[in-house]
Design a protein around this nucleic acid. Structure first.
Lengths: 118, 118
DNA sequence: GTCTTACTCAACCACATGGTTGAAGACAGG
DNA sequence: CCTGTCTTCAACCATGTGGTTGAGTAAGAC
């Protein structure tokens, strides 16, 4: 599963450890060993996380002797924010419209009420 | 797993069907049956997806006789965009700084080169 | 060449997830 | 009450995921 870019990106950030890694890479590039150091899990586990981030297009890796420095690629973030903001905007606008409809209804009701009182 | 709000929200949107449901709910509220109709999967499967979206705080449900109308809640989107944009900004800024460092280095090199020519 | 460092690959395990089907709830209408 | 409609619950299955350990690979250091 998780075939498309967007699915892979969201899935990658669904894990707290991976979000943490992204946060650290935002400060600066780091090797697998450096990234693994703060965690109690094995280096292989972190290596797997980095593979997921790489497959999601969030991280790119180069080579420096035995080391594999990881670098954050901010581009895919655009995809996600664009997707989210689109529906966020739609939902908020719809909410505003609903709100005004309710206001209209209330005003109408009050109008009717006043009519009844006449 | 997927304990915190942010993790649940990202995980919820990692599934294309659920993103599709969110897109439809942005247009307007809908019942489980209405939401399930376009898909070939069972209604129970969609019901499960809606539970995931609800647990993630992306969807709220009310009651209308037997029906359970679903409503998109845009609030959690804020959490996600804020998280993403924070590291996006950091990464981009770092990229700009690196860029200026490289420019400085190049200028320095040219300077040295000029010195050597003296 | 051999050693050490940095990392990946492979096999395995426990558990989560997306799907199924069938039964059970909740509720309006006769 | 019974019936039909809308939805969830429960059990199950296949596959995916995050973790482990142990072996294998790549490349500088001796």
């Amino acid at each position: 599963m998780a075939q498309d870019r967007l699915s892979r990106a969201f899935a990658a950030l669904a894990d707290p450890t991976r979000r943490d890694i992204v946060a650290r890479l935002a400060v600066g590039d780091a090797t697998v060993g450096q990234l693994a150091e703060p965690y109690r899990v094995s280096l292989q586990a972190i290596s797997k996380h980095l593979r997921v981030l790489e497959d999601a297009g969030l991280v790119t890796r180069s080579r420096d002797a035995q080391r594999r420095p990881c670098h954050l690629d901010a581009e895919v973030f655009d995809l996600m924010t664009k997707w989210i903001e689109r529906y966020q905007r739609q939902a908020e606008e719809r909410y505003r419209r609903l709100d005004s409809v309710l206001t209209e209804l209330t005003e109408e009701k009050q109008h009717v009420h006043r009519h009844e009182q006449d």
